[in-house]
């Protein structure tokens, strides 16, 4: 089963929940946690394990062959992303801007732009007790998160079978990277806060998962703070709230040290148990 944990905005506790839930479930299940926030992977701060595998990840970009190029300028015209520029007698390629669509390469009349692989980031695979942890990080300056997210999911799907519980920590927001990260999930958990900011961003996230036609539920973080409007919204829209994590200063403190929370806060553990029960029901 594939579970994606997402939220409309950053800072709602998505990573905290992913890491704690994965570690908690690993007591009874085989779990793999994958951090798909490839721009800012943070889950790894909470999960300890030994480095099992490391892979450089590549994307395909065109490479200019000066010898055969006639400087006809077609490639520059065919690139919708300004990733190719003709500067007098030379052609410049900007790998970060390239979307790997192959148009320039395959439409070049003299085959002077063959596609070659270029490094875009790195995947790391750690393993611990009954839990594996995968994270990928984009190299600084790389702008396309989507291909790396896709390859990271591919790695997980190739290396773990269906008996493994796969938890995906999605990037924040509602844009292409989130869609890439959640489109193959069986179930999505949306993390929010009981505040106007939380509600506003939850609504955006709900619109997104509805667009993807996914089954989903909500976990409220920092419960006790703010107001009831998130509750009301979920009730009106028949969205199940499967857990309410209490707002405790102690949680913020433990989080700040990069430690797992459920091991130290019983109230937190109780809520993880509720999520775990819900997931198990979903699995059947």
């Amino acid at each position: 089963m594939r579970i994606a944990i997402a939220s409309g905005k950053g800072g709602t506790g998505k990573t905290t929940l992913s890491a704690n839930l994965a570690a908690f479930l690993s007591k009874t299940e085989t779990v793999v946690l994958t951090d798909l926030d490839v721009e800012e992977p943070n889950s790894g701060l909470f999960i300890k394990g030994k480095l099992e595998n490391e892979e450089t990840k590549y994307k395909m970009i065109p490479e200019w062959k000066e010898e055969t190029c006639t400087l006809c300028g077609e490639c520059q015209k065919n690139c919708n992303f300004h990733a190719i520029i003709q500067l007098g007698p030379q052609i410049l390629v900007f790998p970060e801007l390239c979307h790997s669509c192959y148009a320039c390469s395959e439409l070049c009349p003299t085959d002077s732009l063959p596609m070659v692989s270029q490094r875009m980031g790195k995947l790391k695979h750690y393993s611990g007790d009954n839990i594996d942890f995968i994270e990928s990080q984009l190299d600084i300056g790389q702008e396309q998160a989507v291909p790396l997210i896709g390859q990271t999911i591919q790695y997980v799907e190739n290396n773990f079978d269906d008996n493994t519980l796969k938890i995906y920590d999605s990037p924040p927001g509602t844009s292409c990277p989130v869609i890439e990260a959640t489109k193959d999930a069986d179930f999505i958990i949306l993390v929010t806060e009981p505040t106007p900011f939380g509600l506003h961003d939850l609504k955006l996230a709900v619109e997104t998962v509805k667009e993807l036609r996914k089954s989903f539920a909500v976990v409220i973080n920092r419960w006790g703070l703010g107001d009831e409007k998130v509750m009301d919204y979920c009730k009106e829209n028949d969205i199940p709230i499967i857990a309410k994590i209490p707002n405790l200063r102690q949680i913020a403190e433990i989080y700040s040290r990069g430690e797992l929370i459920f091991e130290q806060v019983p109230e937190f553990k109780d809520e993880l148990l509720k999520i775990s029960d819900y997931i198990k029901k979903e699995m059947d």
């Binding site: 065919n78 919708n80 992303f81 979307h99 669509c101 192959y102 148009a103 395959e106 439409l107």
Partner: peptide, 10 residues
């Protein structure tokens, strides 16, 4: 769709 326009061209 990424908007690359390759389909349009071919």
């Amino acid at each position: 769709c990424e908007g690359c326009g390759y389909c349009e061209k071919v």
